[in-house]
Protein backbone atom coordinates (compact mmCIF):
# COMPACT_ATOMS: atom_id res chain seq x y z
CA UNK A 1 0.00 0.00 0.00
CA UNK A 2 2.84 2.37 0.84
CA UNK A 3 4.84 1.62 -2.27
CA UNK A 4 3.39 4.21 -4.68
CA UNK A 5 3.78 6.87 -1.98
CA UNK A 6 7.46 6.01 -1.90
CA UNK A 7 8.15 6.52 -5.60
CA UNK A 8 5.73 9.46 -5.67
CA UNK A 9 7.64 11.18 -2.90
CA UNK A 10 10.91 10.75 -4.77
CA UNK A 11 9.34 12.41 -7.81
CA UNK A 12 7.94 15.25 -5.70
CA UNK A 13 11.23 15.93 -3.94
CA UNK A 14 13.11 15.85 -7.23
CA UNK A 15 10.74 18.45 -8.61
CA UNK A 16 11.20 20.67 -5.56
CA UNK A 17 14.96 20.34 -5.77
CA UNK A 18 14.90 21.66 -9.32
CA UNK A 19 12.66 24.58 -8.25
CA UNK A 20 9.58 23.22 -9.87
CA UNK A 21 6.17 23.13 -8.24
CA UNK A 22 5.93 19.38 -8.67
CA UNK A 23 2.91 17.15 -8.34
CA UNK A 24 1.74 15.92 -4.98
CA UNK A 25 3.52 12.86 -3.56
CA UNK A 26 0.22 11.02 -3.97
CA UNK A 27 0.44 11.34 -7.76
CA UNK A 28 1.50 7.73 -8.20
CA UNK A 29 -1.82 6.46 -6.84
CA UNK A 30 -3.72 8.57 -9.34
CA UNK A 31 -1.34 7.44 -12.07
CA UNK A 32 -1.96 3.77 -11.27
CA UNK A 33 -5.74 4.24 -11.28
CA UNK A 34 -5.56 6.13 -14.57
CA UNK A 35 -3.41 3.42 -16.17
CA UNK A 36 -5.69 0.69 -14.85
CA UNK A 37 -8.67 2.22 -16.66
CA UNK A 38 -6.92 2.60 -19.98
CA UNK A 39 -7.04 0.33 -23.00
CA UNK A 40 -3.96 -1.83 -23.33
CA UNK A 41 -2.26 -2.47 -26.62
CA UNK A 42 -1.26 -5.91 -27.80
CA UNK A 43 1.55 -5.59 -30.37
CA UNK A 44 1.15 -8.00 -33.32
CA UNK A 45 3.93 -10.53 -32.71
CA UNK A 46 3.12 -11.07 -29.05
CA UNK A 47 2.28 -14.28 -27.23
CA UNK A 48 0.87 -15.01 -23.73
CA UNK A 49 4.35 -14.24 -22.39
CA UNK A 50 3.60 -10.56 -22.99
CA UNK A 51 0.96 -10.72 -20.25
CA UNK A 52 2.88 -13.10 -17.98
CA UNK A 53 5.73 -10.58 -17.73
CA UNK A 54 3.93 -7.89 -15.71
CA UNK A 55 1.84 -10.45 -13.81
CA UNK A 56 4.81 -12.46 -12.57
CA UNK A 57 6.94 -9.36 -11.98
CA UNK A 58 4.23 -8.23 -9.55
CA UNK A 59 3.53 -11.65 -8.04
CA UNK A 60 7.23 -12.44 -7.55
CA UNK A 61 7.79 -9.15 -5.75
CA UNK A 62 4.66 -9.62 -3.64
CA UNK A 63 5.83 -13.12 -2.72
CA UNK A 64 9.23 -11.82 -1.68
CA UNK A 65 7.56 -9.08 0.40
CA UNK A 66 5.28 -11.64 2.06
CA UNK A 67 8.37 -13.43 3.36
CA UNK A 68 9.64 -10.27 5.10
CA UNK A 69 8.78 -10.62 8.79
CA UNK A 70 7.74 -6.97 9.15
CA UNK A 71 4.14 -8.08 8.92
CA UNK A 72 3.20 -11.52 10.23
CA UNK A 73 3.81 -14.01 7.46
CA UNK A 74 5.34 -17.40 6.75
CA UNK A 75 8.86 -17.94 8.03
CA UNK A 76 11.10 -20.99 7.66
CA UNK A 77 14.72 -22.02 7.27
CA UNK A 78 16.25 -20.54 4.15
CA UNK A 79 13.37 -18.18 3.36
CA UNK A 80 15.78 -15.42 2.34
CA UNK A 81 16.92 -17.55 -0.60
CA UNK A 82 13.34 -18.07 -1.71
CA UNK A 83 12.66 -14.33 -1.42
CA UNK A 84 15.62 -13.38 -3.63
CA UNK A 85 14.75 -16.08 -6.15
CA UNK A 86 11.12 -14.97 -6.30
CA UNK A 87 12.42 -11.59 -7.42
CA UNK A 88 14.45 -13.54 -9.98
CA UNK A 89 11.28 -15.26 -11.18
CA UNK A 90 9.72 -11.86 -11.84
CA UNK A 91 12.84 -10.72 -13.63
CA UNK A 92 12.92 -13.82 -15.86
CA UNK A 93 9.40 -13.20 -17.11
CA UNK A 94 9.96 -9.46 -17.40
CA UNK A 95 12.96 -10.06 -19.65
CA UNK A 96 11.00 -12.57 -21.73
CA UNK A 97 8.08 -10.18 -22.09
CA UNK A 98 10.55 -7.56 -23.29
CA UNK A 99 11.78 -9.92 -25.99
CA UNK A 100 8.26 -10.81 -26.97
CA UNK A 101 7.23 -7.75 -28.96
CA UNK A 102 10.09 -8.16 -31.42
CA UNK A 103 11.39 -4.63 -30.97
CA UNK A 104 15.12 -4.15 -30.71
CA UNK A 105 14.69 -1.86 -27.68
CA UNK A 106 13.03 -4.57 -25.66
CA UNK A 107 15.82 -7.03 -26.41
CA UNK A 108 18.42 -4.42 -25.49
CA UNK A 109 16.68 -3.80 -22.20
CA UNK A 110 16.54 -7.54 -21.66
CA UNK A 111 20.23 -8.20 -22.02
CA UNK A 112 21.18 -5.12 -20.06
CA UNK A 113 18.99 -6.27 -17.20
CA UNK A 114 20.65 -9.66 -17.48
CA UNK A 115 24.08 -8.13 -17.13
CA UNK A 116 23.07 -6.03 -14.14
CA UNK A 117 21.66 -9.17 -12.51
CA UNK A 118 24.87 -11.10 -13.12
CA UNK A 119 26.83 -8.26 -11.54
CA UNK A 120 24.59 -7.48 -8.59
CA UNK A 121 23.10 -10.81 -7.53
CA UNK A 122 26.16 -12.60 -6.02
CA UNK A 123 27.14 -9.68 -3.79
CA UNK A 124 23.65 -9.05 -2.47
CA UNK A 125 23.08 -12.73 -1.76
CA UNK A 126 26.43 -13.15 -0.01
CA UNK A 127 25.89 -10.06 2.14
CA UNK A 128 22.44 -11.20 3.16
CA UNK A 129 23.75 -14.71 3.82
CA UNK A 130 26.47 -13.22 6.05
CA UNK A 131 23.86 -11.38 8.10
CA UNK A 132 21.68 -14.49 8.29
CA UNK A 133 24.61 -16.62 9.45
CA UNK A 134 25.07 -14.28 12.41
CA UNK A 135 21.41 -14.54 13.33
CA UNK A 136 19.31 -17.41 14.54
CA UNK A 137 17.29 -20.03 12.75
CA UNK A 138 18.79 -19.40 9.31
CA UNK A 139 15.86 -17.24 8.33
CA UNK A 140 14.82 -13.62 7.87
CA UNK A 141 12.87 -13.60 11.13
CA UNK A 142 16.06 -14.36 13.09
CA UNK A 143 18.14 -11.59 11.51
CA UNK A 144 20.45 -9.89 14.01
CA UNK A 145 20.18 -6.17 14.74
CA UNK A 146 22.98 -3.70 14.39
CA UNK A 147 25.01 -3.64 17.59
CA UNK A 148 28.60 -3.30 18.68
CA UNK A 149 29.77 -6.86 18.21
CA UNK A 150 28.31 -7.46 14.74
CA UNK A 151 28.67 -3.92 13.40
CA UNK A 152 31.16 -4.72 10.63
CA UNK A 153 29.22 -7.52 8.99
CA UNK A 154 25.90 -5.72 9.23
CA UNK A 155 27.25 -2.41 7.94
CA UNK A 156 28.75 -4.24 4.97
CA UNK A 157 25.43 -5.99 4.44
CA UNK A 158 23.57 -2.67 4.59
CA UNK A 159 25.95 -1.12 2.07
CA UNK A 160 25.56 -4.08 -0.22
CA UNK A 161 21.77 -3.96 0.03
CA UNK A 162 21.87 -0.25 -0.79
CA UNK A 163 23.85 -0.97 -3.95
CA UNK A 164 21.50 -3.86 -4.67
CA UNK A 165 18.52 -1.51 -4.44
CA UNK A 166 20.01 0.90 -6.94
CA UNK A 167 20.85 -1.96 -9.31
CA UNK A 168 17.74 -4.09 -9.07
CA UNK A 169 15.30 -1.28 -8.38
CA UNK A 170 16.57 0.37 -11.59
CA UNK A 171 17.50 3.66 -9.91
CA UNK A 172 20.48 5.99 -10.33
CA UNK A 173 23.41 5.54 -10.76
CA UNK A 174 22.75 2.19 -12.45
CA UNK A 175 19.63 3.16 -14.36
CA UNK A 176 17.77 6.42 -14.77
CA UNK A 177 14.01 5.97 -14.26
CA UNK A 178 13.22 9.15 -16.19
CA UNK A 179 15.24 8.48 -19.31
CA UNK A 180 13.68 7.23 -22.48
CA UNK A 181 16.78 7.52 -24.60
CA UNK A 182 17.48 4.24 -26.39
CA UNK A 183 21.15 4.28 -25.56
CA UNK A 184 20.73 4.49 -21.82
CA UNK A 185 17.54 2.89 -20.63
CA UNK A 186 17.53 -0.52 -18.98
CA UNK A 187 14.26 -1.01 -17.10
CA UNK A 188 12.24 1.37 -19.27
CA UNK A 189 13.37 -0.36 -22.47
CA UNK A 190 11.84 -3.60 -21.28
CA UNK A 191 8.43 -2.14 -20.53
CA UNK A 192 8.25 0.12 -23.58
CA UNK A 193 5.53 -1.87 -25.33
CA UNK A 194 3.40 -2.41 -22.26
CA UNK A 195 0.56 0.03 -21.74
CA UNK A 196 -2.50 0.62 -19.59
CA UNK A 197 -3.07 -1.98 -16.85
CA UNK A 198 0.09 -3.88 -17.84
CA UNK A 199 2.16 -0.78 -17.25
CA UNK A 200 0.34 -0.23 -13.95
CA UNK A 201 1.38 -3.72 -12.80
CA UNK A 202 5.00 -3.02 -13.78
CA UNK A 203 5.04 0.36 -12.02
CA UNK A 204 3.60 -1.16 -8.87
CA UNK A 205 6.09 -4.03 -8.99
CA UNK A 206 8.95 -1.54 -9.42
CA UNK A 207 8.06 0.47 -6.34
CA UNK A 208 7.32 -2.69 -4.33
CA UNK A 209 10.78 -4.00 -5.20
CA UNK A 210 12.37 -0.91 -3.68
CA UNK A 211 10.19 -1.39 -0.63
CA UNK A 212 11.50 -4.95 -0.32
CA UNK A 213 15.11 -3.81 -0.16
CA UNK A 214 14.20 -0.99 2.24
CA UNK A 215 12.42 -3.58 4.39
CA UNK A 216 15.49 -5.83 4.44
CA UNK A 217 17.59 -2.89 5.59
CA UNK A 218 15.05 -2.02 8.27
CA UNK A 219 15.28 -5.58 9.59
CA UNK A 220 18.99 -5.15 10.21
CA UNK A 221 18.53 -1.93 12.21
CA UNK A 222 17.51 -1.88 15.88
CA UNK A 223 14.27 -0.37 17.11
CA UNK A 224 10.51 -0.70 16.71
CA UNK A 225 10.17 -2.29 13.27
CA UNK A 226 7.35 -0.29 11.65
CA UNK A 227 8.97 2.98 12.75
CA UNK A 228 12.41 1.89 11.53
CA UNK A 229 10.82 0.85 8.27
CA UNK A 230 9.31 4.31 7.84
CA UNK A 231 12.65 5.87 8.76
CA UNK A 232 14.52 3.81 6.18
CA UNK A 233 11.86 4.71 3.62
CA UNK A 234 12.24 8.45 4.30
CA UNK A 235 16.03 8.13 4.18
CA UNK A 236 15.76 6.42 0.81
CA UNK A 237 13.43 9.06 -0.58
CA UNK A 238 15.92 11.75 0.42
CA UNK A 239 18.93 9.82 -0.86
CA UNK A 240 17.38 8.89 -4.19
CA UNK A 241 15.96 12.36 -4.83
CA UNK A 242 19.30 14.06 -4.14
CA UNK A 243 21.26 11.46 -6.08
CA UNK A 244 18.97 11.65 -9.07
CA UNK A 245 18.94 15.44 -9.08
CA UNK A 246 22.61 16.15 -8.60
CA UNK A 247 24.22 12.89 -9.73
CA UNK A 248 24.58 11.46 -13.19
CA UNK A 249 23.89 7.99 -14.44
CA UNK A 250 26.97 5.83 -14.83
CA UNK A 251 28.04 4.86 -18.29
CA UNK A 252 26.74 1.42 -19.02
CA UNK A 253 30.22 0.00 -19.53
CA UNK A 254 31.33 1.38 -16.17
CA UNK A 255 28.71 -0.63 -14.30
CA UNK A 256 31.05 -3.58 -13.61
CA UNK A 257 33.40 -1.20 -11.75
CA UNK A 258 30.56 0.20 -9.67
CA UNK A 259 28.91 -3.11 -8.87
CA UNK A 260 32.19 -4.84 -8.07
CA UNK A 261 31.91 -2.94 -4.78
CA UNK A 262 28.73 -4.88 -4.18
CA UNK A 263 30.56 -8.17 -4.68
CA UNK A 264 33.41 -6.98 -2.49
CA UNK A 265 31.04 -6.03 0.34
CA UNK A 266 29.33 -9.39 -0.02
CA UNK A 267 32.57 -11.38 0.18
CA UNK A 268 33.76 -9.35 3.16
CA UNK A 269 30.45 -9.70 4.99
CA UNK A 270 30.48 -13.45 4.49
CA UNK A 271 34.10 -13.72 5.58
CA UNK A 272 33.28 -11.60 8.62
CA UNK A 273 30.41 -13.88 9.47
CA UNK A 274 32.59 -17.00 9.13
CA UNK A 275 35.45 -15.70 11.23
CA UNK A 276 33.29 -13.58 13.57
CA UNK A 277 35.17 -10.32 13.39
Amino acid sequence: MLAPLFSGSVKWLKARLTHRQGLSPLVEYRNLIKLWRKVWIAPHPTTPLFLLGPILALLGTLGALALLPILPGPTFKGDFLLALYLLGLGRFFQMLAALDAGSSFGVQGGYREGMVTVLAEPGTLMALAGAVLLGEGFSLSGLPQLGVENSLVLLLALASLALGLSAEGARMPVDDPTTHLELTMIHEAQILDHSGPLLALYELAGSLKMLFYAGLMALLLPGFKPLVFLGVGVAWVLALAYLETYGVKLRYLRLPDFLSYNTLFGVLALLGAIWRF
Binding site: T47, G88, L96, L99, G102, V107, T117, V118, L125, M126
Partner: peptide, 22 residues
Protein backbone atom coordinates in the same frame (compact mmCIF):
# COMPACT_ATOMS: atom_id res chain seq x y z
CA UNK B 1 24.45 -17.03 -6.94
CA UNK B 2 26.58 -16.13 -9.96
CA UNK B 3 25.63 -19.43 -11.58
CA UNK B 4 21.98 -18.69 -10.81
CA UNK B 5 22.12 -15.22 -12.38
CA UNK B 6 23.99 -16.55 -15.43
CA UNK B 7 21.50 -19.40 -15.84
CA UNK B 8 18.68 -16.85 -15.83
CA UNK B 9 20.42 -14.90 -18.61
CA UNK B 10 21.23 -18.13 -20.46
CA UNK B 11 17.67 -19.44 -20.56
CA UNK B 12 16.14 -16.04 -21.32
CA UNK B 13 18.44 -15.97 -24.33
CA UNK B 14 17.53 -19.47 -25.48
CA UNK B 15 13.78 -19.13 -25.02
CA UNK B 16 13.49 -15.48 -25.99
CA UNK B 17 15.46 -15.72 -29.22
CA UNK B 18 14.04 -19.05 -30.36
CA UNK B 19 10.40 -18.77 -29.34
CA UNK B 20 9.57 -15.06 -29.05
CA UNK B 21 9.88 -12.00 -31.22
CA UNK B 22 9.68 -11.86 -35.00
Amino acid sequence: ALVGALALYFYVRLFGLAFLGL
